[in-house]
Design a protein around this nucleic acid. Sequence first.
DNA 1: TCTGGGGTCCTAGGACCC
DNA 2: TCTGGGGTCCTAGGACCC
Length: 423
Amino acid sequence: MSTKSGVPKVFALADCNNFYVSCERVFNPKLELQPVVVLSNNDGCVVARSPEAKQLGIKMGVPLFEIRALIDQHQVRVYSSNYTLYGDMSSRVMDTLSTFTPTLEIYSIDEAFLALSGFSQLNLTEYAQSVRQTVKQQTGIPVSLGLAPTKTLAKLANRLAKRCSSGVFDLSTADVSDVLAATPLEDLWGIGRRYAASLQEHGYSTALDLRDADLSWVKQRYGIVMTRTVLELRGQSCLPLELVTPPRQSLMVSRSFGRPVTSLTHLQEAIATYTSRAAEKLRQQQLAAGILHVFARTSRYGSVPYSDTVVTSLPVPTNDTAELLHYASRCGEALYQPGLQFSKAGVLLLHLVPETEVQANLFDTRDRTRDRKLMATVDQLNRQFGAGTVRFAAVGLQQPWALKAAHRSPRYTTRWQDLLVVR
DNA sequence: TCTGGGGTCCTAGGACCC
DNA sequence: TCTGGGGTCCTAGGACCC
């Protein structure tokens, strides 16, 4: 695969190793070489594991209560998620990566694709090594790099890089057949559990089988997405780097409750809390929403199955907390049913537009200039004195339904009170 | 007792129109 | 017996990702 100029085109996927655990370790070096896990919101499931924790057989995504015994037995260190810290560490890593190439796509909180076209004169593996070392040195975070002619193969190369001590794996020149033959379908980017099972029923079991599958059959049976995967396995790049972040289409805030909610009051408090948070996020990103979805559900495990969504079209796209709270509260009333044990609720905002491009409505009676000033002041106070300093009464005071986060580390990098003290 | 949260894209099918 | 057909738009649901 070559570009027009004849320069080999290589994608590198840089992926932070056990990112959340690594973030915790940067600020608490005692965690090195110890089994460590980081939990999802509400301390529900394991979402990151140190190699030592993986060694103990702790699987990705397992609920905490299922591995209690293992944790006690091996004194696994357990942390609640600290997304403020991880987000901040992520931007430090991305800043460092971006010094190596102008063509970089930030793919997720801990991954970035780099285009290394034009580096043909250099030894790519050495270059990748210097990327690793620099990121480690400047941020404390270990990363691995996979090199390949397509994104899908770079993803695979990265998996292999994670297993070798050098932390770099290059599939850009070698014949990949042997590697693909040793790769189960569900290890491929874009092939999840369902597709893997379905392909298996048709006699495919490895990535090599899929690469050599009949393209028109794949297209007809599974659609365009998997067809691209097949082509990428063949070394034909179909997924370009996305250098500009596409505008966001939706924004969601949802949480499971720390304990079941049965009263309308508590359901409304939770919905108001999530709505407030969603409105803050909108303002941070200078967006306004035209459609509000509010949903609530009971637990998938036991209890009466119930899940419903109420949709409201807003008269004018808005990011005003008070206005969104007004509509959300109506939705909450519509969703509530006595006797149900609600386990989760959430708010989804759609039809997002830049706040500067909001079309006025002729019949709009709100004094929006005044509203905007109020929100700006509230945001400023909360930035200065901490989140939640100024709140709307609707969010409640006690919040007995609120989620659990019993093991959270301090926000070392984003809160003055939590700054690490060296004695 | 205890099972995450936040996204995107694609497709099928219905509504509607000419 | 005859009862169009094709295009577009929208939505819900399903698949995937981290």
